[in-house]
Design a protein around this nucleic acid. Sequence first.
DNA 1: GAGTTTGAAACT
DNA 2: CAGTTTCAAACTC
Length: 401
Amino acid sequence: MDENYQMVGQEEEVLEEEIVGEEQYEEYVEIGDDEAYTGDRLALEDGRIVTPARQYAQYMQQMQRVQPQTRYGQAPRLQQGQRPMGSQGVYSYESPGTQRQLSPQRYAYMPESEEMKPQVLRQSNQMFYTPNTSFGVRKAITPGPSREALTTPYMGMVKPPKPIKKSIGKRKPCNCTKSLCLKLYCECFANGEFCMDCNCKDCHNNLEHEAERSRAIKASLERNPHAFKPKIGMSKQKNGVSTKGKSTADFERLHQKGCHCKKSNCLKNYCECYEAKVPCTDRCKCTSCRNTETDRNTKFRDKFTPSLSQLATTTGDRASSPFSDEESEAGQEAPDPKSFPWYYLTDDVIEATTMCLVAQAQEFENKVPSEDLEKSILKEFSRCLEQIIESASMSQNSVVA
DNA sequence: GAGTTTGAAACT
DNA sequence: CAGTTTCAAACTC
Ligand SMILES: [Zn+2]
Ligand SMILES: [Zn+2]
Ligand SMILES: [Zn+2]
Ligand SMILES: [Zn+2]
Ligand SMILES: [Zn+2]
Ligand SMILES: [Zn+2]
C-alpha cells in the first residue's frame, strides 16, 4: 500500500505512489543534446527535487544488507565533480560478480511537504520503489504488469555502456563533523548521494532525516542551481560533429566554474581543476597558474629532475596501465607536477629571489662600475638559483626515498 | 596521528 | 557583488 511519511512538525501528507517508468539510461548517454542532458545529480524539475534512483538503491542495499560487498555508481578514480552521470556507464552498473543492475530511475520530491515522493518520472522497465515503513527505506514493488521484474530487473535491458571498471572502488567516506553532511562541504551530499560507511559525526544525510535533507537540497539548489551538476564538463560536444580531425576526442572536459586558487599554483589537489586532471581555463580566476593547457603539454620537464626521470625509467610505471581506458580520454599521462621546474618556482621563491637581486643591486649601485654591478647581480642570481635547485632536489629526495 | 594549509561553500 | 568565515579535505611533518 502507499505509505505516508509523517514528518515531525510538518504537515503530513499522503503520498500516492505514482509510479512511472524511466527511459533507462538513454537520456544520460545522449550527451550531445544539451537540453536533454543536464548531468544533474539532483535538480529541480517543476519545483520538485529530482534525483537518480541509484542513490536509493545504494542506500537500500546498505540498509538491507544486501550484497554489501558490491557497490555501485562510483568509478574508482573519479574525482569529485567528475562523476559523470551520463558519461559512459556510471549509471548502469554491472558488477562482474553479480547481475544486479541499476537504472537511472528518478524520484521526485514534493517540495511542499519536504517529502520524498517516489515518483519515477519515466519508465521503460519494471522497477518500482515505494516507501517501506519498516525502516523508512523504500523497497521495490511492482504495481505494473510484471511484478517479477523487480527481482530480476533489467536483465539484458542495460547495455553495458562501456567496459566495466576493473574494480568498483568503494567511495571515499566523508569525515564531516559540523555540517551534518547537509551542506556542499560534504562530498557525499554534494554528489547527491547518501552517506554510507562514512566517518561523519551526526550525519543527517540519510533517510532518517529525509525532510531535513530535502530542505538542504533545496537550499543548495537555491544558492546555486548548478550545485549538483558535475563540476567538470561532461564531454559536451562542441557544436555537433567536430570541425577538425579531432573528432570525438574533442570534448569539453573542463571545470565549469573554474578555480580560484591563489597559493597552490593549481599544481596540488587543492585545485579542483588539477584534481580533476583538467587544465585551467579562462573561466578560472587563479593566480600564478601552472595548470594551463600549455603548461601541462610542456615536455620541458625531466631536464631539471634527473632523480625523478631515473625513478620513472626504473620503475617503468607506465607499463602497468597500458589501457587508455574509457573515460580517461584526456588524462593519458600522469604528469607529476613535481617534475616541472616551475613547481618549485612559487611566488614566494620568485619574490625572495627578486628581493635578493634588488638588494644586491642597491648595495653596489653607484659604488662599482655598472659592468661590475651587472656581474654581481648575475652572481647573486646564480647563488639564488643554486639554492632553489638544491631545495628542489632535497624535497624530491624525500619523496623518492 | 596531529597540525597546517588551502580554496570551495557559506555567510554577511 | 566583495569580503569574511566556516568547513573538510589535502598536505606536511
Ligand atoms: Zn559528510
Ligand atoms: Zn558521507
Ligand atoms: Zn554523513
Ligand atoms: Zn586552480
Ligand atoms: Zn582552474
Ligand atoms: Zn589555474
